[in-house]
Design a protein around this nucleic acid. Structure first.
Length: 644
DNA sequence: ATAGGGTTAG
């Protein structure tokens, strides 16, 4: 066979190549005929291993390293592959500097890929450097480079630069227009985004999707809903944008609604839409719904996708079922990513199995995966929630000393929580004072939470003073401090807090509790208008409370607290949402079955007491997931031991 | 000399 015949055969089999093994066979064949040095062949091999086939980047790097003089195409292909991988974000730029040193001329592709890499790492410094190189080589007004410049500056939060880059594109196409609209949404500039959308000379489906993503991103959910209703066509991205957008803003009912509508229209859910709906399940505690979705996903094969399995694992864990979370992790997950390990560690931590979380971390290392900064947050969280102070300290230092991962504010926060929860308040305070970065409100709030658990009035007052420097104030901080005063019997201070809460500008979180009955999610929201469900719950609650009173429940002791902790309701009759939810559960579920409730804020003392009493008097197991942990009530006791 | 690659939305 002639060389050109061989080459044609090779090219043909490369275009059919679907796996790394297949690629290696073709590569071996190429070396037999000496065609493995042909630039066209190497280029195709590189393209497949770096950008098309999954997990073949190492192979691409090895291939690249033996090419004596790589051409721009090869460099570009590897730069793209590396920036899409989990290699450190500066690696694409190292390749570019090698390219420069070897005098390989960059082209428009080179700058498009590099700018995307800069955008991914949100690094304005890198982005500007690449920009100036693009100018030097005369590619800055190139349509593709210009468009990527627009989105790079947008990702770095600089609309003015993005606008300049857009204006420099001689003939912007619809893609460039879409990019500049996105840029305005990134800085919450809805007005100009809308103006550009109206002005643009042509639109494609992505233009509408850009608007949907922009609206949901800035929290304009009703604008998104209207546009979604009126847009000329919808594709899977439009649907998942709505589901994810509504779920991420706590509008679970709407997220479920869009998902149901998608099914009703005969469309198949994809990995994005199921991830979104699972996130709604996870946040709201919709366990049964999650299980049904799981069944469908097994049939459709979606559950083998790592991101989907991670979402499923997370939903099970947050709905209270560590067993099902384990099952997904151990048996059903196709390939585990670092996110999968992190999720499982967080799941174990959430359920108080700190020791198992640490074991799992070690196991991950044995599998040869390198830990990142995020997994240490889960790990430190695991330590603090299981009282493993020494282990936490150990990991905190190892992450920098052994793994070379820089501490972020979240890691410092975990350490404050670690010391604080364990009652080492002085150590916690000392740690905050010696932190190398400026403590934020979350750090102080964590410390305040610890003061609340351990009843340290003096430190709490000091911390509250630090917190008052942050604007606007948070109602949760006032609630915590008033709890601390109330437990210490300082009723006058409790009253003062209440007064200042009314006077100062305080950000109030509306409290809600949810419960799933017969696969339907019921949300009880403070201040919500009355409805038949709420009336039913309220009626049952009155009945339960009167029985509890006969059994010795004395709400008077906590009445002042109760008053303070009212979820921003002035109405004296209105009740805490978790009490309504539990009463609704008692009314609608059969004796003997457990009741699971999810609350978005911390559970208050009075509600906690009521849950304990119900679990004893009615012999019901109740699980409450609140902002900080799971509470499992059984026979009059709570798994938290009354500290939370 | 030849071909092989790109930008925006979840």
């Amino acid at each position: 066979m002639s060389d050109s015949r061989h080459l044609q055969c090779l090219i043909a089999s490369l275009s059919r190549c679907r796996s790394l093994v297949h690629l290696q066979q073709i590569h071996a064949l190429a070396s037999k005929t000496g065609l493995d040095t042909d630039h066209l062949v190497v280029g195709k091999l590189l393209l497949l291993s770096a950008a098309v086939l999954p997990d073949a980047l190492d192979y691409a790097r090895r291939l690249f390293s033996v090419v004596p003089s790589p051409d721009p195409f090869m460099y570009n292909t590897l730069i793209r592959g590396v920036s899409d991988s989990d290699e450190p974000p500066h690696h694409p730029f190292l390749l570019y500097s090698r390219m420069c040193r070897q005098s390989v001329p960059p082209d428009s592709f080179t700058f498009a890929f590099l700018l995307k890499a800069a955008a991914n790492s949100k690094s304005l410094v890198l982005g500007r450097q690449v920009h100036s190189h693009a100018v030097r080589h005369g590619f800055d007004a190139h349509l593709f480079v210009g468009t990527t410049l627009v989105s790079m500056y947008a990702e770095c939060g600089r609309v003015a630069f993005a606008r300049k880059a857009f204006d420099d594109i001689p003939q912007p196409n619809v893609v460039a227009w879409n990019a500049i609209i996105t840029a305005h949404f990134r800085v919450d500039d809805m007005t100009n985004a809308e103006r550009l959308f109206d002005q643009m000379p042509w639109r494609n489906l992505t233009s509408w999707n850009v608007m949907l993503a922009g609206y949901t991103g800035v929290g304009e959910l009703e604008a998104a809903r209207t546009l979604f209703r009126d847009m000329p066509q919808k594709d899977p991205i439009s649907w998942s944008t709505m589901i994810i957008g509504f779920a991420s803003h706590g509008h679970f009912d709407d997220a479920f609604g869009f998902f149901r509508q998608l099914l009703k229209e005969g469309l198949r859910p994809n990995e994005m839409s199921v991830t979104g709906v699972l996130s709604a399940c996870s946040q709201a505690g919709a366990f049964e719904t999650g299980k049904i979705l799981h069944g469908h996903m097994k049939k459709s094969g979606l559950s083998t996708i790592t991101a989907v399995a991670n979402a499923l694992l997370n939903a099970y864990a947050r709905c209270g079922s560590i067993q099902m979370a384990c099952q997904v992790f151990d048996l059903e997950m196709g390939k585990k990513s670092i996110v999968s390990w992190t999720s499982m560690i967080a799941a174990l931590a959430m359920h108080g199995h700190g020791d198992k979380a640490i074991e799992l971390f070690n196991e991950m290392e044995e599998h040869g995966l390198k830990p990142d900064g995020v997994i240490f947050i889960s790990l430190l969280y695991a330590c603090s929630h299981s009282g493993l102070v020494e282990q936490g300290y150990h990991f905190f230092h190892r992450m920098e000393d052994v793994y070379g991962i820089k501490h972020s504010i979240e890691h410092y926060g975990c350490m404050v929580d670690l010391y604080g929860r364990a009652g080492l308040l002085d150590a916690a305070y000392d740690f905050v004072m010696r932190m190398p970065i400026e403590p934020n409100a979350i750090i102080w709030r964590t410390l305040l939470g610890a003061c609340s658990i351990h009843g340290n009035v003096g430190l709490a007052e000091l911390v509250k003073k630090k917190l008052s420097k942050f604007e606007p104030g948070d109602s949760g901080d006032y609630v915590l401090l008033s709890n601390i005063y109330a437990v210490a019997g300082k009723w006058k201070d409790v009253a003062n807090i209440r007064r200042s809460m009314n006077n100062e500008s305080v950000r109030k979180h509306p409290g809600w509790s949810s419960i799933e009955v017969d696969k339907i999610l019921y949300m009880f929201v403070a201040n919500d208008e009355c409805c038949s469900v709420k009336e039913e719950a309220y009626g049952k609650l009155m009945e339960i409370l009167s029985r509890l009173r006969k059994e010795g429940y004395i709400p008077e002791v906590t009445s002042v607290l109760h008053d303070i902790e009212e979820e921003e309701k002035e109405d004296a009759i209105a009740q805490h949402s978790e009490k309504l939810a539990v009463a609704f559960g008692m009314a609608r579920t059969s004796t003997g079955s457990a009741i699971m409730i999810v609350k978005n804020l911390r559970i208050c003392r009075d509600c906690h007491l009521v849950m304990k009493l119900i679990s004893k008097v009615y012999e019901r197991e109740i699980v409450v997931r609140d902002r900080s942990r799971f509470h499992s009530f059984r026979e009059g006791f709570c798994s938290c031991g009354d500290y939370w």
